[in-house]
């Protein structure tokens, strides 16, 4: 058996490595942020959020700037999405929120399209302009319906 101090050192290194692995899993992979304060929290209401879910990314021009915090149903039975984006973003008040899909069958994310107004969105504000998710079902339905119209003519 090794001397006690070598063993203590190895145990110390082992515990450190283990804690680093836990930290990596929690912070990097799990997306746990130690500083929850200061994030810009915004609300957007949609008719249909499609496959958007908690922790879906929020992007501007394809760059990730935040994530979806929660999705709830409001009094008018529309989907109310709470997003948390970087606090240093200067989003004008006429910024539009849209739900897009990465690729044809990829994950859905929220895309913010900045506007031109001088007034800026502040934490707790609602987006004035939103665009719901494209539903493949609805598209196919429209296509089929369109064909039926053609046949009847």
């Amino acid at each position: 058996m090794q001397s006690s101090s070598t063993r203590d050192l190895m145990v110390g290194v082992f515990v450190l490595i283990g804690l680093m692995a836990i930290g990596w899993l929690s912070l990097r992979i799990g997306g746990l942020s130690l500083s929850r304060e200061g994030g810009l929290v915004l609300f957007a209401t949609f008719d249909d959020v499609g496959g958007l879910s908690r922790r879906s990314p929020v992007r501007i021009a394809g760059v990730r700037v935040g994530q979806v915090d929660s999705i709830e149903l409001d009094e008018d039975l529309r989907a109310r999405v709470v997003i948390d984006v970087q606090p240093d973003l200067e989003l004008s008040i006429d910024t539009a929120a849209a739900i897009r899909t990465s690729g044809l069958l990829g994950d859905q994310f929220m895309s913010l399209e900045p506007g031109a107004d001088d007034l800026l969105l502040e934490s707790g504000d609602d987006f004035s302009f939103t665009e719901s998710a494209w539903s493949v079902d609805a598209l196919v339905g429209e296509l089929v319906h369109g064909d039926a119209d053609l046949e009847s003519e």
Binding site: L25, S26, R28, I29, G30, G31, L32, R54, R55, S56, P57, D107
Partner: peptide, 10 residues
């Protein structure tokens, strides 16, 4: 990273 949540998974 997108799929894994701290509370749900880690």
């Amino acid at each position: 990273e997108n799929a894994v949540d701290f509370r749900e998974d880690v």
